[in-house]
């Protein structure tokens, strides 16, 4: 799955390279800047993959955590080992969190590499108008990756909880992904303004604030607090469900 994620910036870069010259101004943010600076490949790929591709892979991983073990039948052996139910849950969540980080990281890393190969790399003009060198730009991209990774933690907690409800991993994966999409649809409806700050997807594309000088940490902070809230709530739900669950698989 990390390979599939890394393929996204590669596809974008190759597509832009092959059709270069037609800077129409359409397409995802930052797309038409790629030809001037390869570092924008990573950013464009992040904008493209945050709404669907990343949640999809995180949904697969988080939805599989407990229900995958149950469907293999290995859950009963892990618990009889004894792994400890709380310990198993924590390990599974940490695993999902590590996946979030490596998923976001591989998109950015592959973007930087392919961008550097196919396009010139130079100083980047930030959204605030300031210019920073390539090294600091890469630092900023790493910050973007960690922002996106943090953004996905809430979804991981939701997936972990859904995974404790069923022995069918595909069901848990699908439900998690559907929730991610639904939350974004709700977030796009202006009539539901009051709900937006509570949606775990609310700050997903807020990483642009990390591209200002000085860095605006507000959205990073609010995002982290929101995701933490989701981890607490769904972690508690997963805990109460899993510690009392009859393992009959």
């Amino acid at each position: 799955m990390l390979g599939a994620l890394a393929a996204i910036p590669v596809l974008i870069a190759i597509a832009v390279r092959v059709t270069s010259g037609s800077s129409s101004g359409r397409g995802p943010a930052f797309l038409d800047q790629i030809t001037q600076n390869g570092l924008f490949v990573a950013l464009t790929a992040m904008v493209v993959s945050t709404p669907l591709f990343l949640p999809l892979t995180v949904g697969v991983v988080a939805g599989d955590t407990i229900s995958g073990e149950a469907s293999h039948g290995t859950l009963r052996y892990l618990l009889a080992a004894p792994a400890g139910r709380v310990r198993l849950l924590v390990v599974k969540f940490v695993g999902a969190a590590v996946f979030c980080l490596s998923a976001a990281g591989s998109v950015v890393l592959a973007g930087i590499l392919i961008g550097a190969i196919l396009f010139p790399v130079g100083p980047v003009t930030l959204l605030s108008g300031d210019t920073v060198g390539p090294v600091e730009s890469i630092g900023r991209l790493a910050l973007v990756a960690s922002y996106v990774a943090v953004s996905l933690l809430g979804l991981s907690a939701i997936g972990l909880f859904i995974s404790t409800l069923t022995d069918v991993p595909v069901g848990a994966m699908a439900a998690t992904v559907v929730l991610a999409v639904t939350a974004q649809v709700l977030g796009a409806l202006p009539q539901l303004d009051w709900l937006h700050p509570w949606l775990f997807t609310n700050y997903w594309l807020g990483f642009a604030d990390l591209l200002r000088q000085p860095i605006a940490w507000d959205s990073f902070g609010s995002n982290a607090v929101l995701q933490l809230g989701y981890i607490v709530v769904f972690g508690a739900l997963a805990y109460s469900r899993f510690t009392t669950k009859d393992v009959l698989s």
Binding site: H72, T74, Y77, L78, A81, P82, A83, G84
Partner: peptide, 22 residues
């Protein structure tokens, strides 16, 4: 009945389950 990860070797499966036993 036994239940194991099909993509791991027999020894690796036992390793994993033994690691689960803290």
């Amino acid at each position: 009945g036994p239940a194991f990860y099909p993509f791991l070797s027999g020894a690796a499966n036992l390793h994993r389950l033994d690691t689960a036993n803290r």
